[in-house]
Design a binder for these strands. Structure first.
Length: 271
DNA sequence: CTGGTCACCTGGAAGC
DNA sequence: TGCTTCCAGGTGACCA
């Protein structure tokens, strides 16, 4: 799915196309994603202008100049696309938001995504309240990360994927950032030294920034709202590259299982 | 609290 | 060709 970079690329493309435009109607084709889709969205939002789109971790928050927000999460296979107003409904199309010029469609074959209405104050909603810091915010630094990791004895890679520790990281970018920082994914999180925390913080920011600039990583499902592919997968150093040579040291990249997820790493230069 | 495991759901690829 | 098994950008409920 979309991790932070893919969600941010989606946010930027939707903002460019939709901000200031009125929502004309809401069409629901599926009753349930991860949670039931609210039935009263049309009555609540029809006629309202979209004035802002924010992102928190992997969540998108649509602001229609009301106290609450429309929350969208893309799960593993969700996509938001801008389509002509007469685009026919197909399998796995769940919700259409018709603006005056585009149909914004949420498609999600696996239905792990979510579309919810959140009453104000939005930041107190359980899905958002426990999220860790935004890795691209200035307030996120090695000191803050170290304070959170200090108590964690588990392996660093699954800890990084815990949205309560840092928001927005998933399987690809946790692995990529650890490689960039030269840290073995199996290292106990609480045992990283100060210099390693600095390296990890910088690696996270650089990896995410570069991925956003490249339009995200298109693997199976993901494209931007305009249908464009993200090209960051071409720059993956370890993710999906088991058996290939490490671009930094030439050792053979390996794959292992951590917390039921695949982890890719280089045994040569990740210590 | 923390850290593993599992379920949620569908489709594509690989194996036989 | 066709059936089976495994795997996938996430997350949170459950259990030791």
């Amino acid at each position: 799915m979309p991790e932070l970079p893919e969600v941010e690329v989606t946010r930027q493309a939707l903002a460019a196309a939709l901000l200031g435009r009125p929502l004309k109607r809401v069409l629901c084709h599926a009753a349930k994603l991860r949670y039931p889709v609210p039935a009263d969205l049309h009555g609540r939002l029809a006629g309202r202008p979209l004035v802002a789109i924010a992102r928190r971790g992997k969540y998108l928050l649509f602001d229609f100049a009301l106290p609450g927000r429309l929350l969208v999460h893309l799960g593993m296979s969700g996509r938001l696309r801008l389509l002509p107003l007469d685009a026919p409904v197909r399998k796995h199309d769940h919700v259409d938001l018709d603006f005056d010029h585009w149909r914004l469609r949420l498609t999600d074959p696996r239905r792990f995504g979510a579309l919810l209405w959140l009453e104000a104050p939005v930041e107190r909603h359980p899905l958002l309240a426990g999220l860790g810091p935004e890795p691209l915010d200035d307030a996120f630094d090695a000191v803050a990360l170290g304070l959170t990791l200090r108590r964690r004895r588990g392996a660093i890679k699954p800890v990084l994927m815990d949205a309560h520790v840092v928001a927005g990281l998933g399987n690809i970018y946790a692995a990529e950032a650890l490689h960039r920082a030269g840290i073995d994914p199996r290292r106990p999180a609480g045992e990283l030294g100060d210099d390693e925390l600095v390296a990890l913080t910088e690696a996270l920011r650089a990896t995410l920034r570069e991925a956003i600039a490249a339009g995200g990583s298109s693997l199976r499902d993901y494209t931007g709202p305009d249908g464009r592919l993200g090209h960051f997968a071409l720059q993956h150093r370890v993710y999906g590259r088991a058996g290939q040579a490490c671009p930094r040291c030439g050792a053979t990249i390996e794959k292992l299982r951590q917390a039921n997820r695949s982890t890719f790493y280089c045994p040569g230069c990740q210590k």
